[in-house]
Write a protein that binds this DNA or RNA. Structure first.
Lengths: 149, 149
DNA sequence: TATTGTTATACTCTATAACTATA
DNA sequence: TATAGTTATAGAGTATAACAATA
C-alpha cells in the first residue's frame, strides 16, 4: 500500500489561488479606497474606455463577468454618473452603455495608477517573462474552461 | 492631452484573477460535490498528510489561511472525524491537530484525483513550462506580499 | 419559445473586531 | 500585556433560479 503524497506547496491550483488572492486583495483595496470602485466596476470602465458603447452582454463577455454582476456594476456606475445608458436601436430588450465625461476623467486618473501597481508586481520580470506568464495564464484559463469534467 | 489607455486583456491582475477563478471554480466544485470538502478544509488535510501533528497557527502559515478560516475548517474536519485535536503540552492556549485513520483514508482518495485535475489543466505544459509558471507565481506572490503600498 | 436584463437568494472566501483563556 | 484561538458580523464575488420585457 503506497501512500500517495501531494505537495500542496507545488500544487498548481493552490499556487495560483494564493498568488491571485494576494494580488487582488492589494489592488482591489486600492480601487476601493481611492476611487470607491469595486473590481467589476473597474473592469467595465476599462472595457468601455478601450472602445465605444456596448450592450451589457458584450461588456460581460469582454470583461469576463456574468450578467448579474454586470447589471449591478452598471447600475452603480450609472448612479455615480460615470456611464450612461441609451436605448439600443437594434434590440428593445437591451441598451447601450457608454462612458460620460466624468467616467473618462476617472478612468484617466486610474489607468496610470493601475499600470504602476502592475509594474510594481512585475518589477523584476523581463518582457519575455511577462509575455510568457501571460501566455501560460491564457492556456490555463482555456483548459479550465473546457467542459471535460 | 494624451489619453492613456490600458488593455484590460493584457493587464496582469485581470488575467491572473480570471485564470485563478476558472481553475478554482472547477476544482472546488469537485471537492465539494465528491467529498463534501471546502477549499480550506482540503488544504488542511493536504498539509497534515505531508507531515505530523501541528498547531492551528502552523497550519495556517503552511496553507496560507488566516486563523479564522483555520478555526472553522478544523472544526468541520473534527466533526467529521477526519482530524483530532489533543492538548498541546507546550502551550495551554493551543492544541495539536492530526489526521485520523479516516482522514488519511479520505486524503488517499482525493490526492490522486487532485493530481489528475492538475494534470488536465497543465495538459500541454512541458515540465520546464510548469516549473517556470510555478516560479513566476511565487515571485508575483512575494511582490504582492510586500508592504510598499 | 427563446433571449436580454433585473431581482432575490444563498454560499464561499476573506477581513475586522470583540471575546476567552492562557502565557 | 501579549498571544492563541473562537465567535460574531460584514463585505466582495459568484452562482442558481424566478421574473419582466422583448424578440
Amino acid at each position: 500500500m503506497s501512500m500517495m503524497t501531494l505537495r500542496l506547496d507545488a500544487f498548481l491550483p493552490y499556487r495560483l489561488s494564493v498568488a491571485s488572492n494576494a494580488v487582488s486583495t492589494r489592488i482591489s483595496a486600492s480601487y476601493r479606497r481611492r476611487f470607491g470602485l469595486k473590481v467589476p466596476e473597474w473592469r467595465l470602465l476599462a472595457i468601455l474606455a478601450e472602445g465605444s458603447e456596448m450592450t451589457p452582454q458584450a461588456l460581460g463577455n469582454a470583461a469576463r463577468i456574468d450578467k448579474i454582476s454586470v447589471s449591478r456594476a452598471a447600475a452603480a456606475l450609472i448612479e455615480r454618473g460615470l456611464i450612461v445608458a441609451r436605448a439600443n436601436p437594434g434590440d428593445g430588450r437591451s441598451h447601450l452603455l457608454a462612458l460620460t465625461t466624468d467616467g473618462r476623467g476617472l478612468y484617466a486618473e486610474i489607468a496610470p495608477i493601475a499600470l504602476a501597481m502592475e509594474a510594481e508586481l512585475l518589477g523584476n520580470f523581463s518582457q519575455e517573462e511577462r509575455d510568457q506568464f501571460n501566455a501560460l495564464l491564457r492556456r490555463i484559463e482555456a483548459a479550465a474552461g473546457t467542459d471535460s469534467a
